[in-house]
Design a protein around this nucleic acid. Sequence first.
RNA 1: GCCGCGGUGGUGGAAUGGUAUACACGCAGGACUUAAAAUCCUGUGAUCGCACAGAUCGUGAGAGUUCGACUCUCUCCCGCGGCACCA
Length: 824
Amino acid sequence: MSKYQPQEFEKKWREEWKKEKIYDFRFKTLDPKKKFYNLVELPYTSGDLHIGHWFTFTTPDVLSRFKRMNGYDVFFPIGYDAFGLPAENAAIKRAIHPKDWTMKNIENMTKQFHTIGTMLNNWDDAVITCLPEYYRWNQWIFLKMYERGLAYRGKALSNWCPSCQTVLANENIENGKCWRCGNPVVQKEVEQWFLKITKYADRLLWDKNSNGVDWPMSVRVGQNNWIGKKGGINMDYPVKNSNEVITCFTTAPVNFGMTFIVLAPEHQLVKKIIKGEIKVESKTRKTVEDYFKKAQKKSEMDRLMEGKIKTGVFTGLYAINRIARWDVPIWVSDFVIGHVGTGAVQGCPGHDYKDFEFAKKFDLPIIRVVVGQDADTSEINKPEQIIIKGMPGKMVNSKFLNGLDFEEGLQKTMDYAEKKGWGKRINSYHLRDWSISRQRYWGSPVPMIYCPKDGVVPAPEKDLPIELPYEVDFTPKGKPPLATNEKWLNVKCPKCGGGAKRDSETLDTFFDSAWYWYRYVSPHYDGGPFDKIEVKKLTPVDVYFGGAEHTLGHTLYARFFTKFFHDLGLVDDEEFALKRVQHGVVLGPDGNRMSKSKGNVINPDDKVKEYGTDTVRMYLCFMMPYEATSAWSDKTIAGVHRFLNRVWKIFQLYKDSAAFIENKQLISKLQKTILKVSQDIEKIKMNTAIAAMMEFLNAWESSITPDRWNVLSEEAAKDFLKILAPFAPYMTEEIWRNVFGENTSIHLSKWPKIIETVTDETVTIPIQVNGKLRGTLIVNSRLLFDEGKIIELAVKNERVKKYLSGKKFKAIYVKGKILNFVLL
RNA sequence: GCCGCGGUGGUGGAAUGGUAUACACGCAGGACUUAAAAUCCUGUGAUCGCACAGAUCGUGAGAGUUCGACUCUCUCCCGCGGCACCA
C-alpha cells in the first residue's frame, strides 16, 4: 500500500489540469442564469505570496469549485493592483525602476499562486492596473467625470513638507516630521483634484433593506456613519458694524442659550480680519493672525498631544442673535474645523460639552434653557448638568418656547428662523469629496493640460492613454517626479495649439481598484472601459471576498463608481456585488500579527514542503471561521494532515477490496454529511464542513471490522471523495483517477445528489423533567409522531420514572426533538 | 465619547429557543517497538463519589421572558475593531 506523499503528485496534476484546460472559462457558452461571478479583492504586487493570501483565496476557491460541480459557470478571475507608493519606495531605496520591480513581483506571485491550486481562471488575461491598456480607461473615466462636473480642482488642507514641496500621506509622517528629509510637516491648503463623491452621498447610504444585497452589518453601519448624514439648520448671524454674515450649522439651535460664536481658523472671516478687510483694533488683528499661524503649523500629531484643551482668541467683533435679541462675541478656535458644517459654531454652552469647555476656559456666560429629568434648575457649572439634544427635557428661559419638550423647542426655533428668513434647514454630511491627486510617479497620469491662455484643458479622448514616461527623477525637490521629464511634460494645447504643460500628478490607486471587476470581464476590450454586453451577462458579482480594512475606502469608492457607470448607462446595477464576505487575519504562532521583526512569519512554501498543498488549504479552512482572527498552530495543521492521511489510507484499502457488504447506517450518515457540507460551503462555513467530513471518516473507520471492511458502495465512496474535492483538489484527483480509474477530472464531476429524506431506523429523543435532562428514549422512527406512545414509553423509562412518581405533571412534546415533563 | 462585533473546556472553536462543549489540538493511560518517532485504541468541563452508580454546578456578572435560554429582553463588566473637539 502506497503512502500518502502529496509532493509526488501535486505538481503532476497541476500540469495535467493546465493541459486539460479544466479551469478555462468560456464566455461563449454562458447561460446567464447559471453564471456565478466569484470575486476576491485583487492583490497588491508586494512581491511574495504570504500565508494571508493563501487564507484569503482558499475559501473562495472552495466555493468556486463547489459551485461549478453544482452546474454553475463560475467566473473566478484574477488581476493585480500594480500602482502605488511601495514600488516607488523600492525604486528610491534599491535603484530598481518601479515598473521593473512591479512586473518582476507579478511574475513571482503568479508562480506562487499556482501552487495554491486554485481554479482561478484567466491567468493569461490577468488585469494589471499599471499597464496602459488598463489605466487608459482610468483616464477615460476621469474625463467623463470632469465633463459632468464630478472631477474638479479644489483646495484642501493637507500635510505638506515645505522642504520637499510635496503633499504627504499620513503614513509618511514620522513624529510630525517628513519621512524623507526630517523637516517638520505643516498643514497647508493645497490645490488638488477631487471627485465629488458627496453628490452621491444619499445614494450611497444603506437602507433598512440593505439596498437589496447581502452585505455585513459592520460595513453598512460603518459606511452610513462615515457618510454621516445629519439634519440641522444653517443659521445666519449678521456681524455688527459690517456687511458680513456668519452662517452657523447646528443640529440643535438653542438660541436662547447661545452666548458666543466660534470660527475655525481657516474661516473666510478670519482671513478678512487678517487682511484688514474688516476693521478691528490692530492689536486684536495681530493676535488673530498669530493664532491663525500657530493653528496652521499644527500637525495631526500636535493636535493629538494637545488633547482637548481649548485654545482661542477673541476677534473684537460681535454678531446679532436675532432670535434672542442680543449680541454675541465672535471668537476663533481650532476646535472648530473648517470643513465640518460651515466652519462656524454657535456656542450654546449649557447644552453642548465642547461649548461648555470653551465657555469655562474663557469665562463666557452659560445659560440654562433646558431642565432635564433631574429637575435641576440651578446654574450649569459642571459637565454633569449639561443636557444635550436627545435627552428628555423641557424648555425654560426661552420666552415663547417655555414649557415645550426640548426636541419640540428646537423644531419651533427652526420654524421661526425659516419664517423670518434667518435660517434654512439643511442636511450636513461627514463624507467629504475624495482627493485623488498624488504628487507621485507610479500611478495613472491625470489626463489634463494647463495652458497659459486657455487654463485647464482636458486631454482629447483620442490621445489616451497618456502614457507614463519611463525616464523620470524619483527624488526631485519642489516638483512632482513627472515634471522632471520635460519632453513628456510639454505639449500643445488642444484648444489653441500653443505651448502647454501636462498635469504632472497621478491618480490615487483607489481609483484603479474602483472598477476593475468590470474590466475583468473583457480585459482587452478597446471600445470602452469594458464590453457592456459581456458585463451585463456576468455581473453583478455574486460574492465579493476581501478585507475589513476596505469598509470606508475601497468598497465605498467601488459603489460610487458603480452608480456613476449606472448614470452613464454602462451598467444596470446600482450595487456591484450581491454579497460581501470579509476575511479575518492569520496571526503568528505567538498570537501577534506576523512581521519579520518579530520573527513569527509562517512561510506557506515551507508548509507545502512539509505537508503538501492540500493540507495547508484544509488547515486554513479548518482553523477558524473565515471572518475570524486567530493564531497559526503547527499542532493543528498536523492534525489536519493526519485526517488526509487516513482518507488516503482508507481509499488505498478500497482499491484492494473484494466483497462489499453495505452498511445502511453509514449510508445515512453519508447523506447527512453531504447535506451538511453543501449547506456549510454555501454559508462560507468551511470549518464546520470539514468537521462534518472528519466525523464521517470516524464513522466509516469504526464501521470497518476485520471480516467486514468494505462497507461503502463504489458510488458512495466516490461521493465522499467528491465532497472533499473542493478542499483537497490534488489528493482527491489522485484517488479519483488511480483508485477508481476515472479519466476525466474529479473537478469536472457532478456534486453528489442529496437525498433529502434520510430516515434512520431509530431515533433518540431526549427527555427532560422541568427542563433538566433526565434520560433519553431510543425509539423506532415510525413512532416519532405518535405523541401518546412516546409519552407512555418515557414515563416508563427507568431514569425518568423516579422524578415523576407520585407527582402531577404535564408533558410538552416537540415532535422528534424533545420531550419535557413539567411538574405541576 | 459614539458606533459595530465579541466573551463557551487547558487551546482553536461547534450548537434553526430543544441532549452545551461537535470537530480538532493538547494532556493522561494503553497497544505496537529493543527503544524512539509514526500509527492505532481508551479517557478527558468542574466538584462530590469505589463506581464505565448517581448527584450538584456550569456558556463574563446580575435580573427578566419561557415548559425549556450560549441563543430573546434589560442593566452592568471586560476584550477587539472603526470613527472621533462632527457643531
